[in-house]
């Protein structure tokens, strides 16, 4: 449980961090809260020669809300996400998701950017980013660019983040004020990754579902945006047939590994149960 030796850098501006990562090359890794990378280093499954710590870069922090446009700095901690009443006002699913990540001590250090950028299919925030259709802003040697959350994840720990790029912010349009939401997660104990989890945002108009968006956590080698399941709800009254169709569509794209949480077929069925409960909860919360 002792990492190999490495050099530690703590730049104070984004430009300096990008330059450092560029000059140090592929043996350097950016570290945000460190709660994914450092355990991997202790197991020597990650052996970076340089750690570039982003914690002193003020421009990567903070939550900015203008109307329904939300921008969150990548180095904003989960605790800060939870504490923001303004954010909970326009987009409560992020507080609900963050509260189900690890435990309070880890949430004091773990960051939103780290959670979404690491590419671990067990991380919770990426599913909520799928349902919000968020945009990830990244900065690298070639300057800044935006990547859609739904295009970001390629495989476990493989993302669209390029060589030397740093995630800087998350942007999204908050759903309409009347939306309902839920993040339903089953885990074995505090601190655990999901056995299965489902994120749901939906809007009801005149007893009909006018918008629906569904994401799934830890049920494949990437977070899943369940498009067919979402579409199965739109236009329905969320009647049993529509919900059954959404659950079937979600189970169809879930391909969880067998692990100590249980065999694949159990976790796939559980995805359906979590989705069912998330839809019910979101429906209750929708105005």
């Amino acid at each position: 449980m002792i990492p190999a030796s490495f050099d530690y850098h703590r730049p104070e501006s984004l430009a300096a961090a990008v330059q450092l990562l560029g000059s140090l090359g592929e043996e350097a890794r950016a570290v945000a809260g460190g709660h994914s990378l450092i355990p991997m280093m202790k197991l020597r499954m990650a052996v970076p020669e340089h750690l570039v710590d982003l914690r002193s870069i003020a421009e990567l922090k903070g939550i900015c809300i203008e109307g329904r446009a939300v921008s969150i700095g990548a180095m904003t901690t989960q605790a800060e996400v939870i504490a923001s009443d303004a954010l909970a006002q326009v987009c409560p699913i992020l507080r609900e998701t963050a509260l189900q990540i690890a435990d309070p001590q880890i949430r004091n250090l773990g960051t939103l950017g780290g959670n979404v950028a690491n590419g671990d299919p067990g991380n919770d925030m990426p599913a909520s980013m799928q349902v919000l259709d968020a945009q990830f802003e990244v900065a690298g040697p070639e300057g800044k660019r935006k990547i859609a959350a739904r295009d970001f994840y390629e495989a476990a720990f493989f993302t669209a983040l390029g060589e030397g790029e740093i995630m800087t912010a998350i942007h999204f349009e908050a759903p309409s004020a009347s939306h309902g939401y839920a993040y339903e997660k089953q885990k074995r104990k505090i601190g655990d990754y999901a056995t299965a989890a489902a994120a749901v945002i939906l809007v009801m108009e005149g007893g009909r579902c006018s918008q629906a968006s569904i994401g799934l956590t830890n049920l494949s080698d990437t977070p899943l945006y369940a498009q067919a399941a979402s579409e199965a709800l739109v236009g329905s009254s969320l009647d049993p047939a529509a919900i059954d169709a959404a659950v079937a569509a979600a189970e169809a794209i879930a391909d969880p590994v067998t692990d100590s949480r249980g065999p694949s077929h159990f976790r796939r069925k559980l995805a359906g149960v979590m989705l069912r409960r998330a839809i019910a909860s979101a429906q209750n919360r929708a105005a």
């Binding site: 089953q186 074995r188 056995t195 949480r261 249980g262 065999p263 159990f266 069925k269 559980l270």
Partner: peptide, 16 residues
């Protein structure tokens, strides 16, 4: 009696 074993009991008894 973790989640999946208990779930499996229910599954084997036809409760799903």
């Amino acid at each position: 009696h973790d989640h999946w074993r208990v779930w499996s009991v229910a599954q084997d008894l036809g409760l799903h």
